[in-house]
Design a protein around this nucleic acid. Structure first.
Lengths: 221, 221, 221, 221
DNA sequence: AATGAATGAGGGTTCATTCAT
DNA sequence: CATGAATGAACCCTCATTCAT
């Protein structure tokens, strides 16, 4: 009709918000929701409630629940890859600095927050069966692998580690990190980010003793 | 719920089998089903079809879908723990033999069959949110941890590895193994049981060089 | 129960009505449905169809079938108790007027409509076994009993009925009414509201001859 | 095969019993079961368990659950009608003796046992909707009505109750009895067989004062 | 005659999706 | 853009019935 349309009231929580902001808000609600109840118990209704919005909002902004989940996964993957890029910058000064930056990144608060880990593993459980998840995860993995492999290769090319196969080390480091993330998620009482970092550094020190020194226990142990 | 339930022509009263055998058959069908389609798409109907039986069979032998899943998880956990026990036997001759047996076990065909890995990770994704899953997984983990920790401690007690903290090594080994299992599941094109074993042995060789020798590449790489 | 639930083409997003109106509509559909087919054959599907709506509507507005039934029973009980209140008003002028008002009420078209009787007895059959039903029915009964007992007591207190025990009369009247309702329901060919009223009045006239006169047959018999 | 068939071991609880005895045993189990859990929660399994026999037994001896229920109802109806016959014998000496015998019967322990009342009302709730139930109940009712009506008619024919319509009294007595049964079932705390009998006798004394005397309170009240 | 494993139709419930407002 | 009532497919579960033993 001809009636004067009300202008959008901007601002969070308002009736109306810029689409991009709403999407972000919903993705964050999804992360909290999955972390709190698991993927199986995450419904459109619980996410909407978590976001303080109405049911219909999700199909409005994402076209389906599936898309919301996909976008959430992609958000985490992008975040991780962006963080990788700063490690890559460190690697330009030296491969060792790059490795240390990677380890730092992997156990930094923002990246391996419990909520995010929960989401990662929720998706990992389904990843084998959903091509879209698989693609996003594979891309993330590749960023990591390429980078770490390059660093290890460079370190080895300096000739001081004749017996070390860079690919093996990279795979090992990757697996170790994944395993430690899992521990952080499911056994928080016996694993901490600090401990995880020490274990990782210890591994690298074993492999590259001439470049990386064994860590010492921060407090007790 | 109240209803007297209309009579209807019912089933043909099928073949009969000992209950215990049926339960086993259904657990195996569940493993195949979860491995094939993921936990989210595993329904009572798909499991029954996989087993070649009717829908009702599951509620007959397990009391609910939830119980079927729980029993399936418990089955895998028990299988693993039983395998651990043979490794424990090996450990009696020497801690090194025990560690080698554990590594062998973890990447043996029967234990880390793709189907079973898929089921493990499907459950791991939910483990945080289901107390029953958590309990079963925790018991399995404890079996592993206790054993590996004991072996590492013994090795270190012989005094040859002054800088090594057994607990750290055990945690690292555990995490590494988990991470490699994950790779075996989600990236089968770049990870094999053989490669996983080499990576693990390489880790142990780094930590306990006086007892364990670096593996050599089986073929190329 | 775990499943992410496959997406599917869903409903046409039907007409909208105020929730309270929908609830009322569904309760009425339930009454018709129970009256038509009995409690045992009343399913969520039949009620929804009777209301001209979809299956899901019931779990949307009531949380379960059980709740729908409970609310339906409560609706009838409330209706009856409200009607009682008008009889109570009549009783203020005189206990006889109150008794007559109660009899009138009990066999008035709106209260003892066949549909409603059918529902009453359907629930009465289950009342012993469902605490919630029991509570609602007991509250309704109490309203009735308290009122009738008070009226009879007042009548007797005037001293003209030395041999009459008010409590006994009240219990008898209550039982008689229940029995007549039952007849109205299951033997409509030989019992009518009119006849039931005459039988009841005849009973009261026997007990309180000085206040209530024997009715005369309206037509033949 | 040719093997010597074991002879039937007779006796209750045995592996084998005369069919008629099994049927009786199952009907009794049904009564207990319905009384304990209501018709809605009475399943073939619960009845069989109550009887201490296996699931299949019911479809073996009755052809369906529906038949079991029908036979149970018929059993109760027959029992009642047989009891009526002894009242009929009493009526031969005098109609008053007959009426007293009927009242006695209706509130005798064996007839209005709580279990049986529960079953009666469970079926009454469904009676409108199941032709078979209706037929059985109607036959039982007719036995009662015919008899009571005849007695009242005879009493009135003696000319001492000019204002009394026998049919009305019979209907009233029938309704009162039904209503008291209902009270006995659902409000056992405030209704007893003794009280019910007094209320009924009081009713008859009001109607036929020249033949039946007002009862006096047995104990208190 | 008796058992109990097996069947499968039907019930209640959940929840992604649609759409009138 | 936003809401939330409405839909209906699919799920888990129950239970009368069948039949091999």
């Amino acid at each position: 009709m001809l009636s004067t349309k009300r202008p959008h009231r901007a601002g969070a929580g308002g009736r109306t918000a810029p689409p991009e902001q709403r999407r972000q808000q919903l993705i964050e609600a999804t992360i909290r929701c999955v972390a709190k109840r698991g993927l199986a118990d995450t419904t459109i209704a619980t996410v909407a409630r978590e976001a303080g919005l109405s049911q219909g909002i999700i199909n409005l902004h994402f076209r389906s629940k599936e898309r919301l989940l996909t976008e959430t996964l992609r958000y985490l993957a992008d975040e991780y890859r962006n963080a990788c890029r700063t490690a890559a910058a460190a690697a330009e000064s030296s491969p060792v600095a790059g490795l240390l930056a990677m380890v730092d990144l992997d156990f930094r608060r923002g990246i391996c927050a419990r909520d995010k880990l929960a989401v990662w593993f929720a998706f990992w459980g389904e990843r084998k069966f959903r091509p879209t998840y698989r693609r996003i995860c594979a891309a993330r993995d590749k960023s990591y692998d390429d980078m770490v492999r390059a660093m290890c290769t460079q370190l080895c090319q300096q000739g001081e580690y004749p017996g070390v196969e860079p690919a093996l080390v990279a795979d090992g480091l990757s697996a170790l990190t994944d395993g430690l993330w899992l521990d952080l998620l499911v056994r928080p009482e016996s694993m901490s980010r600090e401990l995880a970092r020490r274990i990782t550094m210890s591994y690298l020190a074993d492999v590259f003793p001439r470049h990386i020194r064994q860590p010492v226990a921060s407090s007790g142990s």
